[in-house]
Amino acid sequence: MTEAFVQVNQVRHALTETTRRTNLLQLLRNDLQLNGPKYGCGLGECGSCTVWVDGVAARACVIPAHGVAGRSITTLEGLPALHAQAGQLHPVQQAFVDAQAAQCGYCLNGMVMMAAALLARNPNPSEADVRRELSGNLCRCGTHLEIIQAVLLAAERMGQPT
């Protein structure tokens, strides 16, 4: 049997027999000690576990770990490496800080990952585009307005020449 691998935040990891029986979220949090993706509902409905699989936002709690063999996973911890300015937060992360768009922070992983995915596809979204993109992510603290402002701020900053 050929050994399976997954690339997480640009680092290659072997999928062992143990990890082949778990979901991607368990692999990331328990085996790789990455705490960006959160366990929320376990059903793929709340968005707190959102990661990118080959650049596409996906819910890690419902993806079998063996289902991502040979694929590239990006977590919240890996976003800064995708930005041109090494050592800095990704512009979406920085905009969330600047706009004070977090209260409890539990939804933050999903909101940031979905927002960054949106801006990768659509660098100049409208407020309606942002609302639509984030509509599947649950936030119980009521920071929706700040979150939307943060995404629009990130879009503005990312559109400016550096």
Rank of each mutant, 00 (worst) to 15 (best):
I73K: 05
N109P: 06
M111K: 05
N23K: 06
A117E: 11
P125V: 08
A115Q: 07
D31F: 00
Q10P: 00
G142S: 12
L34S: 00
C49E: 06
V151K: 06
N122K: 14
V151F: 11
Q7D: 05
Q85P: 01
H83R: 08
C49Q: 13
E17N: 07
G159H: 03
P125T: 10
L119M: 07
V8S: 01
A101C: 11
A86K: 12
T75M: 02
R12C: 07
A4P: 05
E133P: 01
M114S: 15
V97D: 04
Q10K: 13
T18Y: 14
V130G: 03
R20V: 00
P123G: 15
N137P: 04
C46M: 04
A116Y: 04
K38M: 12
N9D: 15
N9A: 05
P64K: 01
L145K: 03
Q100H: 14
Q93L: 08
V51C: 07
G105L: 10
G42Y: 08
S126H: 07
A95K: 03
G47C: 10
H83Y: 15
A84H: 03
T19H: 02
L25H: 11
Q160W: 02
L43K: 07
N122P: 00
L118G: 06
G159L: 03
L134C: 01
C46K: 03
G36S: 05
T162K: 10
S72E: 15
M111P: 05
M111I: 14
C141M: 04
A14G: 00
G44W: 13
V92C: 07
A84Q: 14
M1S: 08
Q94A: 15
Q94D: 10
